[in-house]
Design a protein around this nucleic acid. Sequence first.
DNA 1: ATCAGAAATGCAATGTTATAACATTGCATG
DNA 2: CATGCAATGTTATAACATTGCATTTCTGAT
Lengths: 181, 181
Amino acid sequence: MFTTKTNLMNPSLPDDQCPQFTTGTTEALDRAEAACRARGASLTAIRREVLELLYRSPTGVKAYDLLARIKEARPGASPPTVYRALDFLIEQCLVHKIERMNLFVACRQASHQIPSLFLVCPKCSGVTELQEQSVMSALSTSLAEAGHRLESPEVEISALCPKCVGAASAQCADGEGGALG
Amino acid sequence: MFTTKTNLMNPSLPDDQCPQFTTGTTEALDRAEAACRARGASLTAIRREVLELLYRSPTGVKAYDLLARIKEARPGASPPTVYRALDFLIEQCLVHKIERMNLFVACRQASHQIPSLFLVCPKCSGVTELQEQSVMSALSTSLAEAGHRLESPEVEISALCPKCVGAASAQCADGEGGALG
DNA sequence: ATCAGAAATGCAATGTTATAACATTGCATG
DNA sequence: CATGCAATGTTATAACATTGCATTTCTGAT
């Protein structure tokens, strides 16, 4: 079971000490910079700062929260400043966007052999990136039968994280439903 | 294979003739009204009009597009008019929201025995609602292992529909990836 | 060194999606 | 008639994202 699970959910550790970091943030940033360079792209100061904020966050972060933080150092920063940096980082596969919540999260996978499953906690914005062969192959089969083709290698699932399980309510899962059919 | 597949992707048919409708829209609306009534809720004129627009649309619809249509008959309509109707319809399980695209779509399932898979086409906004035991059980297993709990009975997958397959480009699915790990 | 072109950034405005806050209407019931 | 309550109307604003254009910075060629 190829389950490279990274727990991004522990907000209480000091910088550079989160257990999912095999080395410090600075080293990770340097590696990211090298990777960009190798692809003919450049991890400029702004981009690096945005990526650093994401590396240091245990949860997904909203664009305007990033903007607020970037503004501390660069008062002139505006929405495009951040969105452009994010676009670049996403292109470089250094960051993922969680579409359903408009959240951005640094990629902590060493590689993407398999499309990733993103478990997004609707309570705390925690994001867990999984690579699950079993789910993906079942999904591929169903998609193929339906004549569809997976568009992005990222599948988002709204699921309460272990910490937040406890208050959820799930209506609409019962036997009634649409008026059609 | 419990695959209640409904094809919502055929925009070219006249009202009340889409093949996935076993009966006409009016009858479906009447049935929806009865279902609401049975639950002590009421499908008022505004709500019914919004639902009707969704029944007649083969694709997901944006809230402000609904608003524009509603305004034709009710010039005073404003965003809350539509959002309140949508909230109600979602509560009544008559409508689903596709979170990742801010799209609303009428529910065409007779019942929700199993959480639904929504295949959302990023090109044309077409939505196909599937109920796939195999995918869901694989998913449940993985979620349980990760200590998570599925939050909503709706799982959205971005997948090109049969008509739109052809132009897609999928970078980021290769062997590189994050700078961490 | 310096110049041209490309890439990145600054900046203002605007577009899009969604909700807050408060007032009003209309109807059922006692 | 008064009261209560659900629904709706109305205005404003919050939250998220993009466009367009001017300016600066970087890079490579001469």
